[in-house]
Deep mutational scan, measured.
Amino acid sequence: MQIFVKGLTGKTTTLEVEPSDTIENVKAKIQDKTGLPPDQQRLIFAGKQLEDGRTLSDYNIQKESTLHIVWR
């Protein structure tokens, strides 16, 4: 499925993911596209910070959802 990651600059990155992907895995995909290391990424969805060990489905993140990224 496709999801979007929007940064503070307003730039949006598209990712191809599975609902079973962990947040850690998603951060690795973001690094592949942007070069930003996972330890500098904070992902937010529906006002919650996403924890590395959880999956996208744990947070009810579905296709075409938009996550927000904040740099540490």
Results as ranks from 00 to 15, higher is better:
S65M: 13
I61H: 00
L43W: 03
L15W: 03
S20P: 02
E18P: 03
R42K: 10
E16P: 03
L8V: 12
Q49M: 12
T9R: 08
I69S: 03
P38V: 12
K11T: 12
I44E: 12
I30S: 01
K6H: 10
F4Y: 15
G53C: 05
D58N: 05
S65I: 04
G53P: 06
Y59S: 02
G35D: 04
D21W: 11
T13F: 15
R54Y: 14
E16F: 11
D52G: 06
K27S: 02
H68W: 10
E16N: 11
D52S: 06
T12R: 08
I69N: 06
E24W: 13
E51K: 06
I44F: 14
T55W: 03
Q31N: 07
D39M: 08
E24Q: 09
S20H: 10
G47K: 04
I3W: 01
K6Q: 12
Q41T: 15
G47P: 01
D21V: 03
Q40S: 11
K33A: 15
Q40K: 10
I61Y: 01
I69D: 04
Q2E: 09
S65C: 05
G7L: 14
T22P: 04
D58G: 04
P37E: 07
D39H: 11
N60S: 08
D39T: 12
I30W: 05
L43R: 00
K48F: 11
E18Y: 13
K33P: 03
S57E: 12
Q41M: 15
N25G: 10
E64F: 13
P19R: 07
R54L: 11
D32G: 08
T13V: 15
I3C: 02
N25T: 15
T34C: 06
T34M: 11
Q40R: 13
A46R: 11
K6G: 04
T55H: 05
E24N: 09
R72W: 10
T22A: 04
Q2Y: 13
K33R: 09
P38T: 13
G35C: 04
S57V: 07
K48D: 06
I61M: 04
K48I: 15
L36Y: 09
L56A: 02
Y59W: 02
G10I: 14
T22N: 04
K6W: 08
W71G: 11
A46I: 06
I30Q: 01
W71Q: 13
D39N: 12
I23L: 05
T55V: 07
K11W: 15
N25H: 10
K6I: 15
E24L: 13
Q40Y: 10
R42G: 07
P38N: 08
T66P: 02
R42D: 15
I44D: 04
L56Y: 00
A46C: 06
E18M: 13
T34F: 12
Q49A: 11
K33V: 12
Q31C: 07
L8S: 12
T14Y: 08
K48R: 11
L67D: 00
I30M: 07
I30T: 02
Q40E: 10
E64M: 11
I61V: 09
L50R: 00
I69C: 05
L67F: 03
L43I: 09
G10Y: 06
G35I: 02
T22I: 04
L67I: 15
L15F: 06
I69E: 03
W71Y: 09
T12L: 13
T12A: 06
N60I: 03
F4N: 05
G35K: 05
W71C: 07
E64D: 13
